[in-house]
Design a binder for these strands. Structure first.
Length: 595
RNA sequence: GCCAAUGUGGCUCAGGGGUAGAGCAAUUCACUCGUAAUGAAUAGGUCGUGAGUUCGAUUCUCACCAUUGGCUCCA
């Protein structure tokens, strides 16, 4: 694919990823040109390509843009492509660049130039009447854009800052060929089918109701089975690693959260305080303070450390209404939380064990598509973070060093830290929407000091421990959402709400079917008998596409005569014949080994 | 919270200024059936809520609520 760079030289590029990026970037320009033709007052901010396509943030002034306007823009884009305009770059000195943009009424571009370093080369690309400030590279002619589609519009803040004006973001995607575009559209449709909210409803896993409140989903019997299995799973792992589990209340005094610093740095994410008998309480957004108090409950020797306190903790956060998303993000959720109280010397070892646990769990669930982030504070942000430069420098470099020593592959992100310390976050991409954090491991020199926690060291001195906050499954709710989407609701046997469904060919075989089902239930298997008078095909279909049960047992005359069962495995059309005893052994083995 | 869209029986959706329709699910009946939908009948909705325009609103207008896609934020 031929592309043109800002200095005017043309190169043949042969790298699929790069090609796609350039193609989409040019698509963004063509879209902007189309918009400018249709809405001459439009003022353009940023218009990049990304891994899914491209977008342009546009200020339409007082003009309201809605979905219905997209086809018009798309048509105009097609016209521009057809016109086959050459794409030509040019470079201007700073003053002239500013003047050009000012003359064209591009106030965002002018501001953008102001943000660029003094020695920056300021380049432009022109196609027909349209000029955009851009570093490129781009396609050489508009006709080289073969397959594109506008996907929707949304709001986006100028420079990603909610204090700034909200612009209209128009999103689209582009591919080298129409077939690839079509395949992508199909992929989007399939992602919708994987959406945990949809599957949760289909499988009766959870529900929500306006009367209960938004962001407050409720787990139904089948969903709660999955939830409990996850709880048992992670607690078992943690117990084996020396964690001790506790139970603490969902409410605490405001004073507790003033002591921890949440009141100063996290208040926006908390439900407002409630007053009773002259005392103020809050629903807790985090349970760290409770665990700090548990540590403080008695004196500790260095010999006691590390102390690992875990809890499946109910937390409540006041999340902005627009961010709520099924059980992936609600205003109530259950963290798989733990706080490790360690000596400075133990930091590396304990972070290492946490990281090992995270990847061990991911292996069990087959999670391979994740990204590690070292989340650091934004030193400019004086509100969000506990202010103590020395503490932050120490914590950030300590965590970075440990991650390097452990050989973790990560990227650093500024402004993503917790208010009390830096984090290692492990992020995944759900079926729909932006990346989410699943696991986290946070290094905290702050809270132990605020709570004046101590241990007596070998030299007899009283010292302050370091705290690691960590969540492996993150929250059980969010983890479950992710697993639902990864498995499309086809849970492994140990997690499946219904593990076996017993189906009979006719009512005549009720007695035998019941005895088979009873035997499975007695063996600890979650088995159900479908005793409706439906055709066998109908019941198989439902067990397969609605309940997504791992095993179906079909019983008819043949099985009754032979004293056997016929087993059909989810997603398989072949069946095998076996005895109840053998089947129980097989399934119990799978459950035990969490297969 | 912000930008935009959406809201019709449990679910998926059609309709449209004169007071509602389909499929699936549910219930009942018949069939007693061999591996992804048996047939028939019945029941179920003050069309998200409130106000306005109108002789008349589920349909038009406004406000509110909720949901969805993004933005900000986040486990």
């Amino acid at each position: 694919m031929k592309v043109i760079f800002y200095d005017g030289h043309v190169e043949e590029i042969d790298n699929a990823e790069e090609e796609l990026h350039i193609l989409r970037h040019t698509a963004a320009h063509i879209m902007a040109q189309a918009i400018k033709r249709l809405y001459p007052e439009a003022d353009f901010a940023y218009g990049p390509a990304n891994e899914k396509g491209f977008y342009y943030d546009v200020d339409f002034g007082d003009t309201k843009i809605s979905d219905e306007d997209l086809p018009k823009i798309e048509d105009e884009m097609r016209r521009i492509v057809k016109e086959n305009l050459p794409v030509k770059p040019f470079v201007l000195p700073r003053a002239e660049a500013i003047k050009l943009m000012q003359d064209r009424g591009e106030k965002y571009k002018v501001e953008h130039i102001g943000d660029l370093p003094e020695d920056a080369v300021i380049s432009f690309y022109q196609q027909g009447e349209y000029i955009d400030m851009c570093v490129g590279p781009h396609l050489t002619y508009t006709k080289a854009l073969k397959a594109f589609k506008l996907l929707g519009l949304s709001g986006a803040y100028w420079k990603n800052d909610s204090n700034n004006r909200m612009l209209t973001r128009i999103k689209g995607t582009a591919f080298k060929t129409a077939q690839e575009l079509e395949a992508y559209m199909l992929e989007l449709k399939e992602a919708e089918l994987r959406d945990h909210r949809r599957i949760g409803r289909e499988m009766s896993l959870f529900m929500s109701d306006d009367l209960v409140g938004k962001g407050l989903p409720m787990f139904l019997p089948k969903g709660y089975i999955v939830w409990q299995e996850l709880e048992n799973y992670i607690k078992e792992k943690e117990r084996a690693l020396g964690y001790q589990h506790v139970l603490t209340p969902c409410v605490g005094t405001v004073d507790l959260y003033k002591t921890s610093g949440h009141w100063d740095h996290y208040k926006n994410n908390m439900f407002p305080a409630m007053e009773v008998e002259g005392e103020a309480f809050v629903l807790r957004p985090m349970n760290c303070p409770h665990h700090m108090m548990i540590y403080a409950n008695r004196a500790h020797s260095y010999r006691d450390l590390p102390i690992r306190i875990g809890e499946i903790a109910h937390d409540f956060r006041f999340e902005a209404s627009g961010t709520l998303k099924g059980i992936e993000r609600g205003r109530h959720f259950c963290q798989n939380d733990a706080h490790l109280f360690v000596t400075p010397e133990q930091i590396k070892d304990e972070v290492g064990k946490v990281v090992d646990l995270i990847f061990d769990v991911y292996k069990d669930f087959g999670i391979t598509n994740y990204r590690c982030v070292l989340s650091l504070r934004d030193p400019e942000d004086k509100v969000k973070y506990h202010q103590d430069d020395e503490m932050w420098n120490k914590a950030e470099s300590a965590l970075r060093e440990v991650l390097n020593q452990l050989g973790i592959n990560y990227t650093e992100e500024i402004g993503e830290a917790a208010f009390y310390g830096p984090k290692l976050d492990v992020n995944v991409k759900p079926a729909i929407g932006a990346e989410i954090t699943l696991s986290t491991c946070q290094l905290d020199f702050c809270l132990p000091a605020k709570f004046d926690l101590k241990y007596t060291d070998s030299d007899g001195e009283r010292k302050t421990p370091v705290v690691l906050h960590r969540a492996i499954l993150g929250s059980l709710d969010r983890f479950m959402a992710y697993i639902i989407e990864e498995t499309k609701g086809k849970f492994p046997v140990w997690l499946a709400p219904t593990q076996v469904k017993v189906l009979r060919v006719s009512e005549r075989f009720s007695e035998y079917s019941e005895s088979v089902c009873d035997a499975l239930v007695d063996a600890g298997i979650r088995a159900e008998l479908d005793d409706r008078n439906e055709k066998i095909g109908y019941m198989i279909r439902e067990a397969q596409v609605v309940d997504r049960v791992p095993y179906m047992i079909i019983i008819g005359q043949k099985e009754v005569d032979e004293g056997t069962i016929s087993v059909r495995v989810r997603d398989n059309t072949e069946t095998f014949t076996t005895t109840v005893g053998e089947f129980v052994e097989k399934v119990c083995g799978e459950i035990k080994n969490r297969k």
